[in-house]
């Protein structure tokens, strides 16, 4: 046994030395929202090209960019997925570690849906309703000052809504979906109060804490990162409303219905043309220094940005990705295949 483990250790060190020198497989990290799309392209790419299938890890947008910016070389990932745009601070971090040339590729849109079971009536919400129902502190009706959220039922929030208890199942703070939900839905409703909007200029941290903090008194239930779980719970509890990605609505259209937000139903078309307010752009970032070093990166970009993948009828739209309009798509395609650098 001792001999065996010594031999194993020896072979392992030799093998590792070679593994660290060269890598013939693309490594992708990043957002769990982009994960289903990135993996689909990776699989197609692996099957149709002579290159190995890329390895895709789901680390979250922030975690992915952190790994991505750690440095250049085969120990670091080649591509990172993000469900938001890269931040200036992350670009700086990248540059500090020698990652200067980054190619940005926008791949399409994702809608965040508030939905409930088909057994109950559909909801028609405004962003203001969503904010008032879910924020920790809301402006009082009488004097406009902030007070802890007093609303118990949807009817309290807006007399036009049903008198049902506010019960929303949504992702926990670690999730990118939660960040985007806070930024798009809550902040969208929050801005409809003029004095809070004015706060954005005078006191940005205050503005953020008012607009992004979700109540913790049980009305918003953290249902885990797993959107499937939320969908199943909605089916079992018709009174609850859920917050999840559009692809889960698309796959479960027989049991779940999406709520109208500001009068727009969450459909493929409405998210694509931007009229549905709670949608975000999805990206991936490529390390330019790895192009030509790790085999297949350019071909992978070409596969991702081909019409058969991200086009209107491409295989990614089957998976729930909402494609960009034609001209925007061709613009991004030229930029991506031409390996143009990111400009903030």
């Amino acid at each position: 046994m001792l001999k065996k483990s010594l031999i194993l250790a020896a072979t392992a060190t030799v093998a590792l030395a070679t593994a660290a020198e060269a890598r013939d497989q693309i490594r992708i990290v990043g957002s769990s929202t982009v994960f289903p799309f990135s993996t689909t392209v990776a699989e197609q790419f692996g099957k149709t090209s002579s290159f190995k299938t890329p390895v895709v890890e789901s680390t979250g947008s922030g975690g992915g960019l952190k790994l991505f910016c750690e440095g250049v070389g085969p120990d670091h990932p080649d591509i990172t997925n993000a469900s938001r745009r890269i931040k200036q601070s992350e670009v700086d971090r990248c540059a500090k570690n020698g990652v200067n040339d980054v190619i940005e590729v926008k791949i399409g849109y994702d809608g965040i849906v508030m939905g409930n079971s088909k057994k109950a009536k559909g909801m028609t919400l405004s962003l203001r309703d969503v904010f008032l129902a879910l924020a920790k502190d809301v402006p009082s009706e009488t004097d406009g000052k902030l007070m802890p959220n007093p609303y118990k039922t949807w009817k309290d929030v807006n007399p036009a809504l049903p008198a049902a208890k506010i019960e929303v199942l949504g992702p926990p703070p670690t999730s990118g979906t939660r960040d985007a939900f806070a930024e798009l839905a809550l902040e969208g409703g929050c801005k409809s109060f003029d004095w809070i909007k004015a706060l954005k200029k005078s006191d940005k941290t205050m503005y953020k804490s008012v607009c992004h903090t979700i109540r913790e008194d049980g009305a918003y239930v953290e249902a885990g990162e797993n959107d499937n779980l939320i969908v199943q719970k909605l089916d079992a509890n018709p009174n609850a409303l859920g917050v999840f990605g559009f692809s889960f609505l698309d796959q479960n259209a027989d049991t779940i219905q999406g709520s109208k937000v500001d009068g727009v139903e969450p459909t493929f078309e409405a998210i694509s043309d931007g009229s549905y307010p709670v949608s975000r752009s999805l990206f991936f970032y490529v390390k330019k220094d790895h192009v030509g070093v790790i085999p297949g990166i350019q071909e992978f970009i070409a596969e991702f940005t081909s019409d058969k993948a991200w086009g209107e009828d491409g295989y990614l739209s089957d998976k729930g990705l909402i494609p960009m309009p034609d001209d925007e798509r061709s613009q991004w395609q030229t930029r991506a295949t031409g390996l143009q650098n990111l400009s903030m």
């Binding site: 093998a15 497989q25 994960f35 699989e43 692996g46 299938t53 390895v55 895709v56 789901s58």
Partner: peptide, 17 residues
């Protein structure tokens, strides 16, 4: 350590992903 990943190819040794 990165083993929660989408991997299509069946590994052929202990250092394959």
């Amino acid at each position: 350590i990165g083993m929660v990943a989408f991997i299509v190819d069946v590994p052929t040794g202990p250092i394959d992903p």
